[in-house]
């Protein structure tokens, strides 16, 4: 499903964020990408969704070479991902329903389909009763669950999360962990960049550990 082969990324200015990284992730796997700040976790996720392009090697997702996509093809490739951000990246001028409906509207779902799926996703993360609330009125944990609802509403094959529990209390973090586990159990491939040890022991995933831009084989589980 995802394969990195000899991927390097050097930013303009000379910073080598990733150096000769190779791994594959099969469909349905639950994988954590761990490492210290600056180890290259964020770069790895950015390469997956074509925010950045590799300077060496190839990133293959669903058989597509992500680094070689034309700008026109990028949006359609991104729709196979569900993205969860540490800072949620919600749209604060729209209500909960509209935030979750956005990926469906982007993909051109019919209005009736959209309503059904949005409610299902909100129900799944326990926010159905907040349908018409504005995101700013929700707690941090609720906002993160809203972000997850938006990420999974279009039933993506891959869930990508960048520090999903980074700003949350332990209780909230557990809820998020459970949500991730439940999606993984129904076949969604999940790639989580985190250094949250609690989440790690909660989900006992496969771990890809990065150290200074390279695979840290010594620490791999």
């Amino acid at each position: 499903m995802i394969s990195f082969s000899r991927v390097s990324k050097r930013y303009p200015g000379g910073h080598q964020a990733l150096n000769d990284v190779s791994f594959t992730i099969d469909s349905g796997e639950l994988v954590f990408v761990t490492g210290h700040s600056g180890a290259g976790k964020s770069t790895l996720l950015k390469l997956l969704v074509a925010i950045e392009r590799p300077t060496g090697g190839s990133v293959i997702v669903n058989g597509q070479n992500v680094g070689a996509l034309t700008p026109r093809a990028v949006p359609f490739m991104r729709r196979s991902f569900g993205l969860v951000f540490q800072d949620h990246k919600l749209l604060y001028d729209r209500n909960v329903y509209e935030n979750v409906a956005l990926p469906l509207q982007i993909s051109g779902f019919a209005p009736r389909d959209t309503a059904r799926r949005v409610r299902a996703a909100l129900d799944k993360v326990g926010l159905l009763k907040f349908e018409t609330a504005m995101p700013i009125t929700l707690s941090g944990g609720e906002q993160q669950r809203l972000c997850i609802a938006r990420a999974i509403v279009h039933r993506p094959a891959i869930l990508l999360a960048d520090e999903p529990t980074g700003n949350l209390d332990a209780d909230y973090a557990l809820e998020i962990g459970e949500l991730i586990r439940s999606f993984n159990q129904v076949g969604v491939t999940a790639v989580i960049a985190t250094h949250d040890q609690t989440l790690l022991s909660q989900l006992s995933p496969r771990v890809i550990s990065l150290k200074q831009g390279a695979l840290d084989t010594g620490a791999a589980a």
Partner: peptide
């Protein structure tokens, strides 16, 4: 910011 988010979740330029 809004445009960046929408782009990230797969919106085309036309959208």
């Amino acid at each position: 910011d809004e445009i960046e988010v929408i782009k990230l979740i797969g919106a085309t330029d036309a959208f």
